[in-house]
């Protein structure tokens, strides 16, 4: 890094003239524009949310009601839906992504690595609306017919815990939304995991293999401890995606502002509520409440993504230092 810094300083010195100042100024302007976009997003959200927040105060976050007629709005149901769907997505997505990354980095033959990686990344390229339409017409009926009856019949019978799987199999609901989210975040988590697994110095792994460790032991005792921060960063990145994902969820969650104990029942998420209701929201308070929901979503994802970013940067630095 020092070498680069010195050369760029050396490059800058002989260069002069108006052209340079203009070009430098232009690049700075557009870089600052990126900052201003984020600043603008925050300011506009806060401004838009102000009427709702000043009316309901902190109670907005813990109020489970959502009644446009009496203008009583609370964010609890959408926040709950957002968190639960993302939790389901993570429960399914993390182990699968780990398996995929493990297969690509440790097990599969070299010639297969590139095409396999590309195919997993294509999963990320498919737009969310496509997952939505597929989820609505294909996945939801499938889950309704096969998965949900099985869940109700087995896990639903357990006292207490069974409340999670109570009710009729509808196909449309929190579980289906979480499942689609799991498929959607899988490529993001898997590709970060693959990249951080690749940063492990081959010598470490070879030493472990050399003393007779199995692949499982190498991954569990060498690769994972070495890449822990990066793996968590990747998971948080996927979580950030899952929290804000809109269209796919809107198709299959059922948009109901009620909190059900059962994950088989319809619910709503912040983004689904926005997509469904925003253009039809009549009345300032209704619209402002929706913007306040957007602000809460932005806060949550900002924190998660910032944490992810910081962790990945830390891993990069430590990998750079030891290399």
């Amino acid at each position: 890094m020092v070498a680069i810094q010195e050369t760029s300083a050396a490059v800058r010195r002989p260069a002069g003239g108006a052209g340079d100042a203009i070009f430098h100024g232009l690049t700075v302007f557009f870089a600052v524009l990126v900052l201003m976009i984020l600043g603008g997003v925050i300011v506009s959200l806060v401004y838009g949310a102000l009427p709702a927040l000043s009316k309901f105060g902190f109670g907005f976050v813990v109020n489970g009601a959502w009644n446009p007629v009496t203008e009583n709005f609370g964010a609890l149901a959408p926040i709950y839906g957002t968190l639960v769907t993302s939790l389901i997505a993570m429960l399914i997505g993390i182990p699968v992504a780990f398996g995929v990354a493990l297969f690509i980095t440790e097990l599969c033959p070299k010639w297969l690595r590139r095409p396999l990686g590309t195919m997993i990344e294509l999963l990320a390229a498919i737009p969310s609306i496509i997952y939505g339409i597929w989820g609505l017409f294909i996945l939801a009926p499938f889950i309704q017919e096969y998965i949900e009856p099985a869940l109700i019949g087995s896990l639903g019978k357990i006292p207490g815990f069974g409340a999670l799987f109570a009710g009729p199999p509808l196909g449309i609901g929190v579980l289906t939304a979480g499942f689609i989210l799991a498929i959607m975040v899988l490529p993001f988590i898997a590709s970060v995991m693959r990249d951080v697994f690749d940063t492990v110095p081959p010598m470490l792994k070879e030493s472990a293999y050399g003393i007779g460790a199995t692949t499982t032991e190498v991954v569990w005792r060498v690769v994972l401890p070495y890449t822990r921060i990066g793996v968590v960063g990747g998971i948080l990145l996927g979580l950030g995606r899952a929290l804000g994902e809109t269209m796919a969820v809107t198709f299959v969650i059922g948009n109901s502002h009620h909190i059900h104990a059962s994950i088989l029942q319809p619910g709503t998420t912040i983004s689904a509520a926005l997509a469904n209701e925003f253009t039809e929201a009549v009345g300032d308070l209704y619209q402002s409440s929706l913007i306040a929901l957007g602000f809460i979503l932005f806060l949550i994802t900002f924190i998660v993504l910032a944490a992810a970013k910081l962790m990945l940067v830390r891993l990069q630095k430590s990998a750079g230092a030891s290399a």
């Binding site: 870089a31 997003v41 959200l45 929290l243 994902e245 926005l274 970013k309």
Partner: peptide, 30 residues
């Protein structure tokens, strides 16, 4: 080209990465 180790550069990079994964519906609201 211009922001090696500069504070502004680090900050812009950080914010840009946040925007990269920010929910697109929020951009719609904005």
């Amino acid at each position: 080209e211009y922001a090696h180790n500069s504070r502004l550069g680090e900050f812009v990079r950080f914010i840009n990465d946040i925007l990269l994964s920010a929910p697109s519906i929020i951009i719609g609201l904005f």
